[in-house]
Design a protein around this nucleic acid. Structure first.
Length: 517
RNA sequence: GGGCCUGUAGCUCAGUCGGUAGAGCAGGCGGCUCUUAACCGCAAGGUCCAGGGUUCGAAUCCCUGCAGGCCCGCCA
């Protein structure tokens, strides 16, 4: 049976034969089921050919393949815990039951079985089944059994197929969950309270980005999806929260590539009466804990390497000193804006006429320095103009108290001693505002922190001195689990609409009961 | 935005010099009572991404489009 549609029909046909035999192909449950790994553990280390006589176990999982040898068959199953094969025999199931089971099952089906834990003569832990039930008939065949799904586009469009056919992908996302749990555990242990703030807002501020715009019908107004969590959380400091954090999606209407996704997860925290030095210590504790939490999801050597890498203290470098060293230009910060723009243009950076001194400097920093850090490294004390929400440095003029953490060439986090002077904040926002028109206006707008008037008003009521931190959770997951693309760290990513429908079965090739509208 | 590459069976991939389509897995039929990428035999399965062009003849060469990947630039 050749085409996808014919394969589907063949499976429907088997399903109906099963139903005609008096069994429901989609039953309501399978009570008393234990994990495949637990059965495997029960017989681990026993002699080949032995069995746990008198013990009955019920298991469930997805059929991986069916190896039939006349009057016996082996049917490996997989559940989230691992794999275990069913051992089917005519002697146990009866002639009719055996035949009917094998006539019904296909790779990809979900089945439940009851039987005796055994070790086969070849030493494979198995369940010698006395009963096999269909729990859900799969109408689509799984991808090819030893490559799985490899086409990146298909993996993203149908992540469920990727997951069901590639246990290492599922494992990796289990690792993500473990890291998130550890992050919450540690922050909670440090006394931080988790809060939730709005995704939709009148202004998308707190970060540099193109916002997504949507329409709020109740308010009859266009709103934007947040690009950062910062400003609502700082309002909470004004209100009296002293240690808060939020883990949530932020949205930046920009490109998807190996380390950027338009919809990504950010963790931000704010800590009253602390400064960026305190936050640095916290970042060390947090990343160290995460590296340890990642260990069960990594090969032994990689896990050890990760734990070694994230053993504090981490290296620290001064932004200006390092930029001067790497660029070979001493006194680079004192150069006039025009000269910096020239230099930035010279290294291939995107520049525009109205770009600020600090922005130009940051382009050069990005080119000469940023991707160089392999081990965890804190870069300290950024130029004032790059960072309108951070407090001026207590001893370095023209700079702010800010650090970023780099690992393997990517930025993992960003922290400040938070600016809490309302008048300074207002002035800094105003400096950011681009000229209303003229060359570079549109581009400049892209790289400007939106002015949030109400936030300045909040500061006028008094915000305690505070340290703040933002970390890209997806990138942390990549760093800890050793993933090279953010696509492997986020379960569902956007893909372009297909003119001809979904990849496996589109309109025209589809069957009547199939894919959606 | 720039460059390179890819699109062939449900999946993973071949396809030479331009001569009209191949394998493995999955599926069908048959065989096999300890396999584990099971094995053996038989038969079947194609919108070669789409459109146009060159040509006696195009999966193959050219153009355009669509979708995707990787690298660079840039935002976390």
């Amino acid at each position: 049976m050749p085409t996808g549609n014919a394969l589907t029909e063949e499976r429907r046909h088997k399903r109906e034969k099963w139903r005609e035999g008096g069994d429901e192909p989609y039953p309501h449950g399978f009570p008393g089921r234990v994990s495949l790994a637990s059965v495997r553990a029960e017989v681990a280390g026993r002699e080949p050919g032995s069995e746990l006589a008198g013990t009955l176990r019920r298991v469930a999982g997805r059929v991986l393949t069916i190896r039939q040898h006349g009057k016996t068959a082996f049917v490996p199953l997989r559940d989230q815990s691992g794999e275990l094969q069913l051992f089917l025999r005519v002697d146990d199931l009866g002639e009719a039951g055996y035949q009917r089971t094998l006539d019904t099952l296909d790779p990809g089906d979900l089945v439940g079985a009851e039987g005796v834990p055994v070790v086969t003569r070849r030493g494979e832990p198995s369940l010698r089944a006395c009963s096999v039930k269909l729990l859900a008939k799969a109408l689509r065949p799984p991808p090819e059994k030893w490559h799985g799904l490899v086409d990146t586009e298909a993996r993203l469009r149908q992540r469920y197929v990727d997951l069901l056919s590639s246990p290492e992908v599922l494992r990796s996302f289990e690792g993500r969950s473990a890291l998130l749990a550890e992050m919450r555990r540690l922050l909670s242990a440090e006394g931080f309270l988790e809060v939730e703030t709005p995704v939709l807002g009148r202004v998308a501020s707190g970060g540099l980005a193109h916002p997504f715009v949507t329409h709020y019908r109740f308010l009859e107004e266009d709103f934007r999806l947040r690009v950062a969590l910062e400003l609502p959380l700082k309002r909470l400091l004004v209100g009296g929260f002293e240690k808060v954090f939020e883990i949530g999606k932020v949205f930046r209407n920009e490109d998807l590539d190996a380390d950027h996704s338009p919809e990504f997860t950010m963790m931000e925290l704010y800590w009253a009466y602390a400064d960026y030095g305190d936050v640095r210590g916290l970042v060390e504790r947090l990343t160290q804990a995460l590296a340890r939490a990642a260990a069960p999801y990594l090969p032994k050597e990689e896990a050890e390497q990760r734990v070694r890498d994230f053993t504090p203290p981490y290296a620290t470098v001064d932004y200006v000193e390092r930029l001067e060293k790497e660029s070979g230009i001493s006194g680079i910060v004192e150069l006039p804006r025009e000269r910096l723009l020239e230099l930035a243009r010279g290294v291939g950076a995107k520049v525009y006429a109205s770009m600020s001194h600090g922005a130009a400097l940051d382009k050069l920093f990005g080119h000469y320095v940023e991707s160089r850090f392999e081990r965890p490294t804190f870069v300290l004390d950024y130029p004032l103009e790059t960072t309108p929400l951070a407090k001026r440095h207590r001893s370095k003029p023209g700079r702010v108290e800010r650090f970023e953490l780099f690992y393997r060439g990517i930025e993992l986090g960003n922290a400040y001693t938070e600016l809490n002077d309302p008048d300074d904040q207002e002035a800094r926002f105003r400096e950011q505002l681009p000229p209303p028109s003229g060359p570079g206006g549109a581009d400049a707008q892209e790289e400007t922190y939106a002015y949030d008037e109400d936030f300045v008003e909040a500061l006028r009521y008094g915000m305690p001195p505070a340290g703040g931190l933002g970390m890209g959770v997806d990138r942390l997951v990549m760093a800890m689990l050793g993933l090279s693309s953010i696509k492997d760290a986020i379960l569902f990513l956007p893909t372009r609409a297909r003119p001809t429908g979904p990849s496996i079965e589109g309109p025209g090739r589809g069957d009547a009961g199939g894919a959606g509208p």
